[in-house]
Write a protein that binds this DNA or RNA. Structure first.
Lengths: 190, 190
DNA sequence: CGGGTCATGTAACGAGTTACATGATTGG
DNA sequence: CCAATCATGTAACTCGTTACATGACCCG
């Protein structure tokens, strides 16, 4: 929540800044956008988002204006400050240190020889199907984006380019994962 | 560390069982194998491994035999029990619930429009290069495996099939990531 | 009038990271 | 003799998840 060292923020803070950089919103909208189902580039529950927004405000990276809301608490609309924009801009071009490889399905494939062959094949076929469906959804999103924004998608100065870029990654990653699951199911199902 | 509910273990426990299922080893060897650099399917530091091995032993999933070691503490060799083998076998064919999408580079791509264009292009080119090198290493590993084990790699009953399967995933994932980084660098570098 | 949506927060916990600790043997 | 390797462990902390909490309004 609070910074580890002066000037260092957890990644979720940059995710919030990245969304707020496109226009001010309420904490609730941010939480909706980043909660479970979609959230193509980063996910976080509201229990992480509200305290993080408060921390960003204490740090002067965002400002909030409260209007009386429907519930027991006021509704707050957040906006990025210049300091927040600068922080995000710097972070975007900083190289991440290499993350740990941790994939439950890869671990299962590594131990597949210990399991029942047919059950293991079924597992990978089921995974394949799920991610084929996910792939169809993403392809639908790509069609919608193309229809609405056309050539602007190729312009890295436009915010919508960010959506396109994240979507390209999602499409590629899902295709590759489906390919691997298919291969695994084939290997196991003989 | 301890089980959340009776019969539920953290994933790192299954990773340890998966390695121990191939033959008994010491905690140190496990830690070496799963620490930072390699660990193609799961990574964990020794500070997580030693307590987890102790927990598995308390749960009757592994046994240990201690011989006097070089340091102030005894060297312990661990082996899976029948219960541990059964636990692993069941877990392997259980479907994981879908994991959260959280990729710092995707987040950066989403916010790329806020950054300096040339710096952003350089970032993705650098990532591309790093992962091209990683890919070469994996291809080397694939060659070595093929040379040493040949057709046994295609037999899902052989433990070595697990290495092959994990490696296939690594190769595919790295290739796809390199592809995306290349595309990003191209888009940004115009 | 009961459940869903809007709207914001706190608390408890688990998983993973980083740092601290100890001490013998081996190699340059 | 200093550093690396072998060998095991604990402590403090951060990040992320799950659950708890409150209450107005709207729709069927």
């Amino acid at each position: 929540m609070s910074r580890a060292r002066e000037g260092e923020w957890p990644t979720v803070a940059y995710a919030l800044l990245a969304v707020l950089a496109r226009g001010e919103t309420t904490g609730y909208q941010l939480a909706r956008f980043m909660d479970k189902p979609v959230g193509l580039f980063w996910q976080a529950p509201h229990s992480q988002i509200y305290p993080q927004l408060a921390a960003l405000e204490r740090g002067g990276m965002v400002t909030s204006s409260a209007e009386p809301g429907p519930g027991p608490r006021a509704r707050k609309t957040y906006a990025v400050t210049d300091a927040g924009r600068a922080l995000l801009r710097d972070w975007v071009t900083t190289r991440p240190e290499q993350r740990a490889v941790r994939d439950e399905m890869v671990l299962r494939s590594y131990a597949a020889w210990t399991a029942d062959r047919a059950e293991a094949a079924a597992l990978f076929r089921a995974e394949q199907t799920t991610h084929e469906q996910r792939l169809v959804e993403l392809e639908q999103m790509a069609e919608n984006l193309t229809a609405k924004h056309g050539a602007r998608l190729g312009d890295p100065a436009e915010p919508i380019f960010g959506n396109w870029a994240a979507l390209q990654r999602g499409l590629g990653a899902e295709r590759e994962y489906v390919r691997w699951c298919t291969w695994m199911a084939e290997q196991l199902g003989r």
